[in-house]
Design a binder for these strands. Structure first.
Length: 235
DNA sequence: GCGACAG
DNA sequence: ATCTTGTCGC
């Protein structure tokens, strides 16, 4: 992928909130495309001790969902985990993984929130703004910025997630009797399109297949690097 | 002031 | 997220 990489990364929460606000003002939820042909998904894994973050970007075809490319990068963690500021912790390495992709995806699924976020700008939205590429946020928990009515236990059931009187996402039951997942538009994507694409990318697991592949890839990459570093260290 | 809080 | 063993259930 080709996009301009951010140069100034915040070192404090205060600086991060300012940057996040600037990104929030650039969010558009007008759909950019209709049916995607290529979908990218990104996820991370943390190294032993938690001082290194590994990120993988996987590209799959749609609607077949066959992996055609993956690219991984790792680097030192430079920002603490602060709920609501996940982008500043994982974003740097995720963007490097995306930048290394040869194929140009039509939309990106991010393991995190889109607009279902205290300031309306979760990691998925922030990544979309920087790449100028449609994004969808998909994860397993809600931040304290949304609530929903109970979701029926059958797969396919869902409830809107509301925050400050607005629908910011949906709680979706992707498997019978398994806790719902949370879907929210990130950037250049509507609520309906976000839901439709995630649903059509489910393959029997709680999370959509592209995200599951990215998760597995990040962990495989992590074990590969850590093993290599261990053997190199024993000389 | 306290609690809740993606990964 | 990570560390960590067994264990309950489909």
């Amino acid at each position: 992928m080709n996009f301009s990489f951010p140069h100034n990364w915040p070192r404090t929460k205060r600086e991060a909130y300012i940057i996040q606000k600037e990104a929030a003002d650039k969010i558009s939820l007008l759909p950019d495309i209709d049916t995607p042909k290529l979908i990218a998904a990104v996820d991370t894994a943390y190294g032993y001790g938690g001082e290194t973050v590994y990120a993988s970007a996987v590209v799959t075809t749609f609607p077949e969902i066959e992996e055609i490319e993956r690219f991984s990068r790792f680097g030192p963690v430079k920002f603490p985990y602060v709920p609501g500021l996940l982008f500043f912790r994982e974003g740097p390495v995720i963007l490097e993984a995306l930048a290394g992709l040869q194929h140009e995806p039509d939309i990106i699924i991010v393991h995190g929130h889109g607009i279902a976020h205290p300031h309306g700008c979760g990691m998925a939205s922030h990544i979309g703004v920087l790449c100028d590429k449609p994004t969808i946020g998909c994860c397993r928990k809600l931040l304290n910025s949304g609530y929903h009515r109970p979701v029926q236990t059958q797969k396919g059931s869902f409830q809107p997630v509301l925050f400050k009187g607005k629908e910011v996402g949906i709680a979706y039951r992707s498997k019978d009797n398994v806790k719902p997942i949370f879907i929210s538009p990130g950037y250049k994507c509507s609520m309906e399109q976000a839901r439709d694409i995630i649903i059509r990318n489910l393959r029997g697991y709680r999370l959509p297949e592209p995200l599951r592949l990215a998760h597995l890839s990040a962990n495989t990459f992590k074990r590969y690097i850590e093993k290599k570093q261990n053997s190199h260290h024993l000389r």
